[in-house]
Amino acid sequence: MSLQSTETRRIPDRLGTPLKSAIFSWPSLLIVVAVVLFVVNSLASPYFLSPWSLSDATFNFTEKVLIALAMALLIIAGEIDLSVASIIALASTMMGLALQYGANTPELVLIGIVTGLVCGAFNGFLVTGLGLPSIVVTIGTMSFFRGISYIVLGDEAFKGYPASFSYFGQGYVFWVFSFEFALFVVCSLIYYVLLHRTNFGRQVFAIGNNDVAARFSGIRVERVKFILFLLTGLMSGIASVLLTSRLDSTRPSIAVGWELEAVTMVVLGGVSILGGAGTIQGVVIAALIMGLVTFGLGLLNVPGIVMSIVIGALLIFVIALPILFRKFRNRRR
């Protein structure tokens, strides 16, 4: 998207020491921000530092971060999926429809996840099969998927999910640790291993850096990208199960605007929007930061729309500051 083609890429003679580069890395900067926010929050509100309110705070981001994990891989590979929130709406609608035909809890979960996979496959086919730009395709499917929800539901809502279904969004695994939080931890670990410890992960980076070169080195670029769209659909389906279970209802306007929040998490987490660079750690910490900000401001009775100013400013300035710093340093030399 940006115009960096006239800029040369410099390769240093010697890499920095691992410790030094770890201290100055993006995730460490984010950790500092997160710790500061944590301290500020606990000073600002007496209700912040209690296990239960912290546990409640996790619901703010667990569903979104599940999508952000898959989205991170997709963005690293140089693609994007703006239809995730609409996939949630469609999957939730399908679950609601199935409920009308008397589906039980395991069937509902299966339908939600399969709908997500089908939507992901549809995006993946359009992007990799027909070679279309993902940003436009997913803007189209974003209206299309949610549009189907509106056709099915209109201004109605599906309600009355079975009691056992509510476990996914409201249940606790152990003490204050909710099922959603546990799933978030497990998925973060899986995605960490997938991106940073497997061949597949290296292929994702290779594609993001230079997909022509990746193709010439024997990576099946289309197949990898297709799998990434499938994964994003899958995670959206899972998020849909969680959200539907937590809200205990389905409306066509469910999860509106989440695609931008998921992208914000990913970019704030240090993933390059141009592809080719990023870490899962960064995304996870960025999600914690966004959760802390929204929850902390919520305790202080700040309305949601004002929180969005903070999130937006955070997005721009966290990215702008290192660039400004580098510019300033280069000028002094």
């Binding site: 940006s2 960096q4 929007i273 729309i305 004002v306 969005s308 937006g312």
Partner: peptide
């Protein structure tokens, strides 16, 4: 922001999308 700092347009306008709307409130 896009010209002087070289931040990708999609990132900058994603941020300003939420900021401008918050300012209305």
């Amino acid at each position: 922001f896009i010209w002087r700092l070289g931040i990708p347009a999609i990132v900058v306008t994603l941020g300003s999308l939420t900021i401008y709307r918050g300012v209305i409130f």
